[in-house]
Simulated scan of single mutants.
Amino acid sequence: MTKHRALAACLALALPLTLSACGGADEQTPGAAESSATAVESPSGAADSTPSAADSASVPAELQSLSSWKGEWNNIDNYLDDPALAPGYEAAAKKNNSTPDEEKAALHKRRASDFGGLVIDGDKITFLDNFPSKDGKEISSSEYTWDKTYESVVGGKTRTWYAFKATDSAAKYPTVMFFPIDHEEDLLHFHMRYGNTPDELLAKEDWFPTVVSPDTTTEQLIAEISE
């Protein structure tokens, strides 16, 4: 009986330790739940990852600099009423079972912007009322610094916006966001948004101001409209 009592005492002592160890394996480190919750609900209803500034290490250095978008750019919206683009609207209308005028109006709405051209030089962005080559007058200008990346679902695909903040507190457009330039596409261009805050811009799901290279041809624009 003495041996049985000794064995029972050992088991009684070991049981709480065993339960404690099992429970500890399932517990989260304080704050772990918050730090792991990187997904937020996007304006389109899909879960989008919204990296914080600490995620900059994962963003290529060249995309944390305006140098990736440097140069002179023309606003595509200023081209859209050119009669020479009629074949593009006709092709789009046939594809979408609409009319050329409806296609043009929809494209104007998606590409609408209150500037005609951009000049990106160093850390400075200058917004113009016309193409740079047409003596566009300055609407606004400011230097911008890297902010962070934001993601949104576009056409069923997750796309990354690269955001920059104006250093001038009086800047007309405190925030600008860009998609990267795809240099493999025939039409050299990029989509952007501009305004007050990233949240405001991300909520404008169907708004994609677009600028193109000054060397853009009519044929390239027709192909773009036809897609």
Rank of each mutant, 00 (worst) to 15 (best):
1 M>D: 12
2 T>S: 15
2 T>V: 10
3 K>L: 14
3 K>R: 10
16 P>H: 05
16 P>K: 00
17 L>M: 13
17 L>T: 07
17 L>D: 00
18 T>V: 15
22 C>P: 02
25 A>E: 11
26 D>S: 09
27 E>I: 12
28 Q>L: 14
31 G>A: 06
31 G>Q: 08
37 A>R: 13
39 A>C: 14
40 V>E: 08
40 V>Q: 13
41 E>F: 07
42 S>W: 00
44 S>M: 10
47 A>T: 12
47 A>I: 12
48 D>G: 01
48 D>C: 10
49 S>C: 13
51 P>T: 01
55 D>G: 06
55 D>N: 06
55 D>A: 08
56 S>W: 03
59 V>S: 04
61 A>F: 09
62 E>P: 01
65 S>H: 10
66 L>P: 03
67 S>L: 15
67 S>K: 13
70 K>M: 11
71 G>E: 02
71 G>L: 15
72 E>K: 14
74 N>Y: 06
75 N>W: 14
75 N>L: 07
80 L>Y: 05
81 D>C: 13
81 D>G: 10
82 D>Q: 09
83 P>Q: 00
85 L>Q: 11
85 L>C: 09
87 P>C: 12
88 G>C: 00
89 Y>R: 01
90 E>Q: 15
92 A>G: 06
94 K>A: 12
97 N>P: 05
98 S>I: 06
100 P>Q: 03
100 P>N: 01
105 A>H: 04
106 A>N: 12
106 A>C: 00
106 A>R: 14
107 L>H: 02
108 H>M: 15
109 K>A: 15
110 R>V: 15
112 A>C: 08
115 F>C: 10
115 F>Q: 04
118 L>P: 00
122 G>T: 07
126 T>A: 08
128 L>I: 01
128 L>E: 01
129 D>Q: 09
129 D>W: 15
129 D>R: 10
131 F>S: 01
132 P>V: 05
136 G>I: 01
136 G>V: 03
138 E>P: 06
139 I>Q: 02
139 I>V: 14
141 S>L: 03
143 E>T: 15
147 D>C: 03
151 E>K: 13
151 E>T: 13
155 G>C: 06
156 G>R: 00
157 K>T: 13
159 R>C: 07
159 R>S: 08
160 T>I: 11
161 W>S: 02
161 W>E: 04
162 Y>G: 04
162 Y>D: 04
163 A>Q: 14
165 K>W: 00
169 S>H: 05
169 S>N: 12
172 K>Q: 14
178 F>I: 05
178 F>H: 02
179 F>M: 03
180 P>N: 13
182 D>S: 14
183 H>L: 12
183 H>F: 12
185 E>P: 02
189 H>I: 08
192 M>Q: 07
192 M>V: 04
192 M>R: 03
193 R>C: 10
196 N>D: 14
199 D>L: 13
199 D>E: 14
199 D>K: 11
200 E>K: 13
200 E>C: 06
202 L>V: 07
202 L>K: 04
204 K>H: 02
204 K>S: 06
206 D>N: 14
207 W>D: 07
211 V>A: 01
211 V>F: 04
212 V>I: 07
213 S>Q: 02
214 P>W: 00
215 D>T: 12
215 D>G: 04
216 T>K: 04
216 T>L: 02
216 T>I: 09
216 T>Q: 03
217 T>Q: 02
219 E>N: 08
221 L>G: 02
221 L>M: 15
224 E>H: 05
